[in-house]
Simulated assay, not measured.
Amino acid sequence: MYRIVFFLISSLFFISCNDSKRQEHHKKDNIDLPYYNDPTFTPVFIKDKSSVQKKITHTITDFEFLNQDSVLVNQNIIENKIHVANFIFTSCGSICPIMTNHLKIVNDSLQNDKDLVLLSYSVTPWIDTPSVLSAYKKNHNISNKNWLFLTGLKSEIYKLARQSYYAEEDIGFSRDSTEFLHTEHLILVDKTKRIRGIYNGTVALDMTALINDIRTLQNEK
């Protein structure tokens, strides 16, 4: 019995030490996040930040949609802010509730960060009116004012999803705009509106990676 207890304590100490070493190693290496400049999501690493504007030409385009409070919002809400985008619909009984609950992990961990915006775009905007989105937000106990649920014209949301966020990765430009958009991806965008990460919203472990990457962007010069 004593041997088992000693073994468990030793194992926990070993894991804790390794986690600390990994964190310290990450700090020393000062690892930067890659950029994603096309729908194939091929990572582009850039050491010289002065060349980013020239090498990474793709940014999230301007938009204008209604939020859950019937307030018209546009790209100004993400100016000089990090944001995470995903695409859901309130009547979804499969991956959408899971994605929302997982994104709450990110929200709860970084709720005091005023420079982080979460955008959940509806892919069934003809159903998801502002009042429906407001009820969805309340039902999921989301009070963060910087987490917006957006609705508008289907064509505009789908175009933004596929051509700006590359929400369906390499098929972003190949699908017809009328085809239903359903993706589990969360997209991380930096303060200059450039894509810096993609994550599986149905996998809780990916939320840890997303939180860490957001913190990396917060410290990026």
Rank of each mutant, 00 (worst) to 15 (best):
S10F: 10
I15T: 04
D19I: 09
K21E: 13
K28G: 05
D29I: 14
Y36K: 09
T42C: 08
V44W: 12
K49S: 09
S51F: 10
K55T: 06
T57W: 00
I60A: 10
T61H: 02
T61L: 10
F63P: 06
E64Q: 04
N67R: 00
V71R: 00
N76V: 07
N76A: 02
E79C: 06
N80A: 03
H83V: 01
T90N: 04
S91H: 13
I98W: 08
I98P: 00
K104N: 09
I105E: 07
V106S: 12
L110F: 06
D113E: 07
L116Q: 14
L118D: 06
L119M: 11
S120R: 05
V123H: 05
T124Y: 13
D128H: 10
S131H: 11
V132A: 15
K137M: 02
N144F: 05
W147D: 09
L148W: 01
G152N: 01
I157S: 03
Y165R: 02
Y166V: 00
A167E: 05
D170L: 04
G172Q: 11
S174N: 13
F180S: 12
H182D: 07
H185P: 07
L186F: 15
V189L: 04
T192G: 02
T192Q: 04
Y199D: 12
G201I: 00
T202F: 14
A204Y: 10
I211Y: 08
N212D: 05
K221R: 02
K221M: 08
